[in-house]
Protein backbone atom coordinates (compact mmCIF):
# COMPACT_ATOMS: atom_id res chain seq x y z
CA UNK A 1 0.00 0.00 0.00
CA UNK A 2 1.48 3.23 -1.10
CA UNK A 3 -1.50 5.42 -0.38
CA UNK A 4 -0.28 6.73 2.94
CA UNK A 5 -0.74 10.43 3.27
CA UNK A 6 2.25 12.66 2.62
CA UNK A 7 2.78 15.06 5.46
CA UNK A 8 2.81 18.19 3.35
CA UNK A 9 -0.29 17.42 1.37
CA UNK A 10 -3.49 19.08 2.33
CA UNK A 11 -6.47 19.42 0.10
CA UNK A 12 -7.01 22.87 -1.30
CA UNK A 13 -10.59 22.66 -0.12
CA UNK A 14 -9.35 22.75 3.44
CA UNK A 15 -10.11 20.70 6.46
CA UNK A 16 -13.81 20.27 5.81
CA UNK A 17 -13.26 18.01 2.85
CA UNK A 18 -10.08 16.35 4.01
CA UNK A 19 -9.51 12.66 3.58
CA UNK A 20 -11.41 10.58 6.08
CA UNK A 21 -8.64 7.99 6.34
CA UNK A 22 -6.12 10.20 8.04
CA UNK A 23 -5.84 12.56 10.93
CA UNK A 24 -5.80 16.34 10.84
CA UNK A 25 -2.46 17.83 9.98
CA UNK A 26 -1.60 19.07 13.49
CA UNK A 27 -2.37 15.61 14.87
CA UNK A 28 -0.20 14.01 12.21
CA UNK A 29 2.68 16.32 12.99
CA UNK A 30 2.29 15.78 16.73
CA UNK A 31 2.27 12.00 16.34
CA UNK A 32 5.32 12.07 14.08
CA UNK A 33 7.14 14.26 16.56
CA UNK A 34 6.25 11.91 19.43
CA UNK A 35 7.43 8.88 17.48
CA UNK A 36 10.63 10.52 16.34
CA UNK A 37 11.38 11.84 19.82
CA UNK A 38 10.69 8.46 21.40
CA UNK A 39 12.86 6.56 18.92
CA UNK A 40 15.62 9.14 19.18
CA UNK A 41 15.59 9.02 22.95
CA UNK A 42 15.51 5.26 23.26
CA UNK A 43 17.30 4.01 20.14
CA UNK A 44 19.47 6.58 18.43
CA UNK A 45 20.85 8.29 21.50
CA UNK A 46 22.26 5.10 23.07
CA UNK A 47 23.81 4.06 19.78
CA UNK A 48 25.35 7.47 19.35
CA UNK A 49 26.59 7.37 22.94
CA UNK A 50 28.46 4.12 22.34
CA UNK A 51 30.53 5.55 19.50
CA UNK A 52 31.06 8.87 21.20
CA UNK A 53 32.22 7.35 24.48
CA UNK A 54 34.48 4.99 22.55
CA UNK A 55 36.49 7.73 20.90
CA UNK A 56 36.26 10.26 23.67
CA UNK A 57 39.75 9.49 24.92
CA UNK A 58 41.17 9.83 21.43
CA UNK A 59 41.71 7.44 18.58
CA UNK A 60 45.08 6.34 19.94
CA UNK A 61 43.63 4.87 23.09
CA UNK A 62 40.70 3.55 21.09
CA UNK A 63 43.08 1.59 18.92
CA UNK A 64 45.09 0.27 21.83
CA UNK A 65 41.89 -0.75 23.61
CA UNK A 66 40.76 -2.91 20.75
CA UNK A 67 44.19 -4.28 19.94
CA UNK A 68 45.29 -5.39 23.38
CA UNK A 69 45.70 -9.16 23.78
CA UNK A 70 42.63 -9.73 25.97
CA UNK A 71 40.42 -7.88 23.51
CA UNK A 72 41.85 -9.84 20.59
CA UNK A 73 41.31 -13.08 22.47
CA UNK A 74 37.69 -12.06 23.16
CA UNK A 75 37.12 -11.32 19.50
CA UNK A 76 38.59 -14.64 18.47
CA UNK A 77 36.45 -16.52 20.95
CA UNK A 78 33.31 -14.65 19.86
CA UNK A 79 33.98 -15.44 16.21
CA UNK A 80 34.68 -19.05 17.02
CA UNK A 81 31.53 -19.50 19.07
CA UNK A 82 29.44 -17.96 16.30
CA UNK A 83 31.22 -20.11 13.74
CA UNK A 84 30.01 -23.21 15.57
CA UNK A 85 26.61 -22.10 16.82
CA UNK A 86 25.32 -20.55 13.60
CA UNK A 87 26.02 -23.50 11.28
CA UNK A 88 24.68 -25.90 13.90
CA UNK A 89 21.40 -24.02 14.09
CA UNK A 90 21.37 -23.60 10.34
CA UNK A 91 21.47 -27.36 9.81
CA UNK A 92 18.83 -27.79 12.48
CA UNK A 93 16.66 -25.14 10.85
CA UNK A 94 16.82 -26.88 7.51
CA UNK A 95 16.03 -30.29 8.97
CA UNK A 96 13.17 -28.98 11.08
CA UNK A 97 11.59 -26.96 8.30
CA UNK A 98 11.92 -29.87 5.88
CA UNK A 99 10.14 -32.17 8.29
CA UNK A 100 7.47 -29.66 9.30
CA UNK A 101 6.76 -28.07 5.93
CA UNK A 102 6.91 -31.05 3.63
CA UNK A 103 5.21 -33.73 5.71
CA UNK A 104 2.11 -34.25 7.78
CA UNK A 105 2.62 -36.03 11.07
CA UNK A 106 0.99 -36.02 14.50
CA UNK A 107 2.49 -33.63 17.02
CA UNK A 108 3.62 -31.19 14.37
CA UNK A 109 2.19 -28.14 16.08
CA UNK A 110 3.74 -29.20 19.37
CA UNK A 111 7.10 -29.45 17.64
CA UNK A 112 6.56 -26.02 16.14
CA UNK A 113 5.89 -24.59 19.58
CA UNK A 114 8.87 -26.33 21.16
CA UNK A 115 11.22 -24.82 18.59
CA UNK A 116 10.27 -21.34 19.78
CA UNK A 117 10.67 -22.31 23.44
CA UNK A 118 14.19 -20.88 23.92
CA UNK A 119 12.84 -17.43 23.02
CA UNK A 120 10.64 -17.42 26.08
CA UNK A 121 13.36 -18.58 28.48
CA UNK A 122 15.48 -15.97 30.23
CA UNK A 123 19.09 -16.01 28.96
CA UNK A 124 20.23 -16.49 32.52
CA UNK A 125 18.12 -19.62 32.81
CA UNK A 126 19.50 -20.79 29.47
CA UNK A 127 22.94 -20.74 31.04
CA UNK A 128 21.72 -22.15 34.32
CA UNK A 129 20.31 -25.34 32.80
CA UNK A 130 23.75 -26.29 31.47
CA UNK A 131 25.33 -25.57 34.82
CA UNK A 132 22.78 -27.95 36.35
CA UNK A 133 23.82 -30.61 33.85
CA UNK A 134 27.55 -30.15 33.49
CA UNK A 135 28.64 -28.02 36.45
CA UNK A 136 30.70 -29.44 39.31
CA UNK A 137 27.56 -30.15 41.34
CA UNK A 138 25.56 -30.91 38.20
CA UNK A 139 24.09 -34.21 37.12
CA UNK A 140 27.04 -35.11 34.91
CA UNK A 141 29.59 -33.05 36.87
CA UNK A 142 31.34 -35.87 38.73
CA UNK A 143 31.53 -38.03 35.60
CA UNK A 144 32.98 -35.22 33.51
CA UNK A 145 35.47 -34.29 36.21
CA UNK A 146 36.77 -37.82 36.55
CA UNK A 147 37.37 -37.90 32.80
CA UNK A 148 39.03 -34.50 32.78
CA UNK A 149 36.37 -32.91 30.60
CA UNK A 150 35.39 -29.35 31.38
CA UNK A 151 32.27 -27.85 29.87
CA UNK A 152 31.17 -25.21 32.32
CA UNK A 153 33.59 -22.30 32.75
CA UNK A 154 35.07 -23.37 29.45
CA UNK A 155 34.47 -22.91 25.75
CA UNK A 156 32.07 -25.87 25.26
CA UNK A 157 29.66 -24.39 27.80
CA UNK A 158 29.76 -21.03 26.03
CA UNK A 159 29.04 -22.73 22.71
CA UNK A 160 26.15 -24.73 24.18
CA UNK A 161 24.57 -21.71 25.84
CA UNK A 162 24.91 -19.72 22.63
CA UNK A 163 23.30 -22.50 20.60
CA UNK A 164 20.44 -22.58 23.09
CA UNK A 165 19.63 -18.88 22.89
CA UNK A 166 19.97 -18.72 19.09
CA UNK A 167 18.21 -22.03 18.57
CA UNK A 168 14.96 -20.86 16.84
CA UNK A 169 16.33 -18.11 14.57
CA UNK A 170 16.84 -20.01 11.32
CA UNK A 171 14.01 -22.49 11.79
CA UNK A 172 11.44 -19.84 12.44
CA UNK A 173 12.32 -17.99 9.23
CA UNK A 174 12.23 -21.14 7.16
CA UNK A 175 9.24 -23.06 8.51
CA UNK A 176 6.48 -20.60 7.56
CA UNK A 177 8.01 -19.86 4.18
CA UNK A 178 8.45 -23.50 3.25
CA UNK A 179 4.95 -24.27 4.49
CA UNK A 180 3.63 -21.54 2.24
CA UNK A 181 5.57 -22.88 -0.74
CA UNK A 182 4.15 -26.36 -0.28
CA UNK A 183 5.50 -29.49 -1.89
CA UNK A 184 4.68 -28.96 -5.55
CA UNK A 185 8.16 -27.92 -6.63
CA UNK A 186 9.74 -30.91 -4.93
CA UNK A 187 7.18 -33.30 -6.37
CA UNK A 188 7.77 -31.89 -9.84
CA UNK A 189 11.53 -32.32 -9.48
CA UNK A 190 11.16 -35.87 -8.20
CA UNK A 191 8.75 -36.74 -11.02
CA UNK A 192 11.36 -35.48 -13.47
CA UNK A 193 13.81 -37.98 -12.06
CA UNK A 194 15.84 -35.88 -9.62
CA UNK A 195 17.17 -37.66 -6.54
CA UNK A 196 16.10 -36.52 -3.10
CA UNK A 197 19.40 -34.74 -2.45
CA UNK A 198 19.43 -33.07 -5.85
CA UNK A 199 15.84 -31.95 -5.28
CA UNK A 200 16.84 -30.43 -1.98
CA UNK A 201 19.90 -28.60 -3.25
CA UNK A 202 18.58 -27.58 -6.66
CA UNK A 203 14.93 -26.85 -5.87
CA UNK A 204 14.22 -26.39 -2.17
CA UNK A 205 17.32 -24.48 -1.13
CA UNK A 206 17.19 -21.87 -3.94
CA UNK A 207 13.54 -21.29 -3.07
CA UNK A 208 14.37 -20.28 0.49
CA UNK A 209 17.86 -18.87 0.15
CA UNK A 210 17.02 -15.29 1.09
CA UNK A 211 14.95 -16.31 4.07
CA UNK A 212 17.83 -18.54 5.07
CA UNK A 213 20.31 -15.69 4.85
CA UNK A 214 17.90 -13.50 6.81
CA UNK A 215 17.71 -16.07 9.59
CA UNK A 216 21.47 -16.59 9.60
CA UNK A 217 22.15 -12.86 9.89
CA UNK A 218 19.85 -12.52 12.90
CA UNK A 219 21.17 -15.73 14.42
CA UNK A 220 24.74 -14.49 14.04
CA UNK A 221 23.99 -11.12 15.61
CA UNK A 222 22.52 -12.77 18.66
CA UNK A 223 25.28 -15.40 18.84
CA UNK A 224 28.01 -12.76 18.86
CA UNK A 225 26.16 -10.44 21.21
CA UNK A 226 24.71 -12.87 23.75
CA UNK A 227 25.52 -11.85 27.27
CA UNK A 228 23.32 -13.35 29.97
CA UNK A 229 23.54 -17.03 29.10
CA UNK A 230 27.21 -16.89 28.29
CA UNK A 231 27.93 -14.92 31.42
CA UNK A 232 26.53 -17.72 33.57
CA UNK A 233 28.63 -20.49 32.04
CA UNK A 234 31.79 -18.62 31.16
CA UNK A 235 33.61 -18.21 34.47
CA UNK A 236 35.03 -14.92 33.18
CA UNK A 237 38.60 -16.10 32.69
CA UNK A 238 40.40 -13.28 30.92
CA UNK A 239 41.92 -14.19 27.60
CA UNK A 240 40.31 -17.64 27.79
CA UNK A 241 36.57 -17.68 28.30
CA UNK A 242 35.67 -14.05 27.75
CA UNK A 243 33.60 -13.25 24.72
CA UNK A 244 33.37 -9.65 23.56
CA UNK A 245 30.20 -8.79 25.52
CA UNK A 246 31.78 -10.26 28.67
CA UNK A 247 34.94 -8.30 27.99
CA UNK A 248 32.81 -5.16 27.84
CA UNK A 249 31.37 -5.97 31.24
CA UNK A 250 34.74 -6.63 32.84
CA UNK A 251 36.27 -3.45 31.49
CA UNK A 252 33.23 -1.48 32.55
CA UNK A 253 33.27 -2.88 36.06
CA UNK A 254 36.94 -1.93 36.30
CA UNK A 255 35.91 1.64 35.49
CA UNK A 256 37.90 1.40 32.28
CA UNK A 257 35.01 3.05 30.46
CA UNK A 258 36.91 4.11 27.36
CA UNK A 259 38.09 0.58 26.71
CA UNK A 260 34.67 -0.87 27.49
CA UNK A 261 33.01 1.44 25.00
CA UNK A 262 35.74 0.76 22.46
CA UNK A 263 34.97 -2.96 22.48
CA UNK A 264 31.26 -2.15 22.66
CA UNK A 265 31.58 0.03 19.57
CA UNK A 266 32.73 -3.01 17.60
CA UNK A 267 29.61 -4.86 18.71
CA UNK A 268 27.48 -1.84 17.86
CA UNK A 269 29.07 -1.82 14.44
CA UNK A 270 28.12 -5.47 14.07
CA UNK A 271 24.56 -4.51 14.98
CA UNK A 272 24.53 -1.77 12.34
CA UNK A 273 25.88 -4.09 9.67
CA UNK A 274 23.25 -6.63 10.67
CA UNK A 275 20.51 -4.02 10.35
CA UNK A 276 21.76 -2.89 6.96
CA UNK A 277 21.82 -6.43 5.56
CA UNK A 278 18.47 -7.18 7.14
CA UNK A 279 16.83 -4.09 5.68
CA UNK A 280 18.43 -4.69 2.29
CA UNK A 281 17.02 -8.22 2.28
CA UNK A 282 13.60 -6.97 3.32
CA UNK A 283 13.51 -4.34 0.60
CA UNK A 284 14.77 -6.52 -2.21
CA UNK A 285 13.20 -9.84 -1.38
CA UNK A 286 10.06 -8.92 0.53
CA UNK A 287 8.04 -11.69 -1.05
CA UNK A 288 10.67 -14.32 -0.44
CA UNK A 289 10.99 -13.64 3.26
CA UNK A 290 7.52 -12.25 3.75
CA UNK A 291 6.28 -15.27 5.64
CA UNK A 292 8.57 -14.54 8.54
CA UNK A 293 7.49 -10.95 8.94
CA UNK A 294 3.93 -11.95 9.60
CA UNK A 295 4.91 -13.59 12.89
Amino acid sequence: MSDAIPLDLDFATGDRARSVTTERRPVRIALILIAVAFLTLFLLLPLFAVFLEAVRAGFGSYWSAISEPDAIAAMKLTLMVAAIAVPANLIFGLAASWAIAKFEFPGKSVLNTLIDLPFSVSPVISGLVYVLLFGLQGYFGPYLQSHGIQIIFAVPGIVLATIFVTFPFVARELVPLMQEQGTQDEEAALSLGASGLKTFFLVTLPNVKWALLYGVILCNARAMGEFGAVSVVSGHIRGKTNTMPLQVEILYNEYNFAAAFAVASLLALLALVTLVIKVALEWRFTDQIAASRRH
Binding site: F11, T13, R16, A17, R18, S19, V20
Partner: peptide, 23 residues
Protein backbone atom coordinates in the same frame (compact mmCIF):
# COMPACT_ATOMS: atom_id res chain seq x y z
CA UNK B 1 -17.49 12.70 0.00
CA UNK B 2 -14.62 10.23 0.12
CA UNK B 3 -13.04 11.94 -2.88
CA UNK B 4 -13.17 15.63 -3.60
CA UNK B 5 -13.69 16.72 -7.22
CA UNK B 6 -11.02 18.83 -8.85
CA UNK B 7 -13.79 21.08 -10.13
CA UNK B 8 -17.55 21.00 -10.53
CA UNK B 9 -20.40 20.85 -8.08
CA UNK B 10 -22.45 18.22 -6.31
CA UNK B 11 -25.86 19.28 -5.07
CA UNK B 12 -28.21 17.46 -2.74
CA UNK B 13 -31.66 19.00 -3.09
CA UNK B 14 -30.00 22.03 -4.63
CA UNK B 15 -27.61 22.55 -1.71
CA UNK B 16 -23.86 22.29 -2.11
CA UNK B 17 -22.89 18.89 -0.75
CA UNK B 18 -19.16 19.51 -1.15
CA UNK B 19 -19.26 21.81 1.87
CA UNK B 20 -20.12 18.83 4.05
CA UNK B 21 -17.55 16.43 5.43
CA UNK B 22 -18.16 12.73 5.06
CA UNK B 23 -19.65 12.31 8.55
Amino acid sequence: GLDVPTSGRVLFDGEDALKLTVP
